[in-house]
């Protein structure tokens, strides 16, 4: 167990590699109750959220999710988050645990008009993620609605095993899967019910990290921070063209171009690079590692890091200095693991 954002979380159950492979081949269950959940509702909710987030809440259809960022006035990333539109005047915002308290204060202090923020986390709401190619087969029989009709990046309210939930077809693994938000008292029973299925095994923070890294999904505090904008992180696809805090600065920066860019790399060997390791190209230091892990699917070490734009092309040969060893690595297309089932079309 480790402390993470004020919660005690398991790093592993059966072992990181087994949990990781189980998620890629069957279904893994993650307890993600530490993440912040804010319900925003009211006649002005859409317009107020649009002003705060890079995802345009006002243009989001009911039943859809959108990934994006909460930026400060300098376009630094305060957090990354998923916004779910549950109804015309009701949104669920899911944020990181370590930043949740600051996020809530920031959002609350910028809201005006007819909008109310309900801190579901403070009311004890939990979140469990079921992720893997078997996820729909496991979950559909428990749903009181047609779960298979819920497409990628769609959300809805519904009952699972008789419990009121918010269900979103999203996740952090690259696999077909669902994020399930529900009242805290319902989490243990739903958790146990899902684990009754032979296809489901619990997975901890270790597998969650290696799964997201194979998919090159950013982790706040590693790839994302106040010191960088979505431009350097190569994530401007998640920035709308509406007016929002930090938007003008971000567009100005986009015109001049970033001075560093986030890349994924694949090492030749199994040894893991660590955050903070220097990245060299030829005899020049070109950047810094932000995440590193052993990839259970590729069976080599992988990672992400920020490098100067002229060392960012796919195929660029890098040398990573761990302080103890030099690791040969190559810039590789994202995602590093390309066989994820997240976008699978269900009948």
């Amino acid at each position: 167990m480790v402390e993470f954002g004020g919660y005690l979380l398991p790093v592993q159950y059966a072992g990181v590699l087994a949990e990781h492979r189980h998620c890629r081949t069957a279904a893994a269950l993650f307890d993600i109750s530490h993440m912040g959940q804010f319900l925003l509702r009211g006649a002005d909710a859409a317009e107020q959220l649009a002003k705060l987030l890079t995802q345009n809440a006002a243009a989001l259809d009911v039943g859809r999710d959108r990934y994006g960022f909460l930026l400060n006035a300098e376009a630094g990333v305060l957090d990354d988050c998923i916004l779910m539109r549950l109804d015309d005047e009701e949104f669920l915002l899911v944020v990181n645990a370590a930043t949740a308290a600051d996020d809530r204060e920031w959002v609350q202090s910028h809201l005006s008009g007819a909008v109310e923020l309900v801190n579901l986390s403070a009311e004890g709401w939990g979140k469990i993620d079921l992720q893997g190619p078997r996820a729909a087969d496991v979950l559909a029989p428990l749903a009181d609605f047609d779960l298979r009709a819920l497409q990628y990046f769609r959300c809805r309210r519904g009952r699972l095993d008789g419990r009121d939930c918010i269900i979103s077809r999203t996740g952090y693994t690259g696999e077909l899967g669902y994020e399930i938000m529900t009242a805290g008292e319902d989490v243990p029973a739903l958790w146990d019910r899902l684990l009754d299925d032979d296809d489901v095994a619990p997975a901890g923070l270790g597998a969650r990290d290696s799964l997201r890294l194979e998919m090159c999904l950013p982790l706040y505090g590693h790839e994302l921070s106040r010191d960088r904008t979505p431009l350097e992180a190569n994530l401007t696809a998640f920035v709308g063209d509406h007016e929002f805090i930090g938007g003008d600065v971000l567009r100005d920066r986009a015109r001049s171009g970033p001075d560093e860019t986030l890349v994924a790399f694949r090492c030749d060997g199994r040894r893991q690079p660590r955050p903070g390791n220097a990245i060299r190209h030829g005899d020049r230091q070109v950047g810094t590692v932000t995440s590193g892990a052993f990839s259970p699917m590729l069976e080599v070490a992988i990672g992400m890091g920020y490098v100067q734009p002229d060392a960012a092309d796919d195929g660029t040969e890098l040398m990573i200095d761990t302080g103890r060893a030099e690791l040969a690595a190559t810039v590789a297309p994202k995602p590093l693991y390309a066989q994820g089932t997240a976008r699978t079309k269900l009948e």
Binding site: A18, R271, Q272
Partner: peptide
Amino acid sequence: LGDITFVE
């Protein structure tokens, strides 16, 4: 240590 991935 858990799953060993590399031995120097």
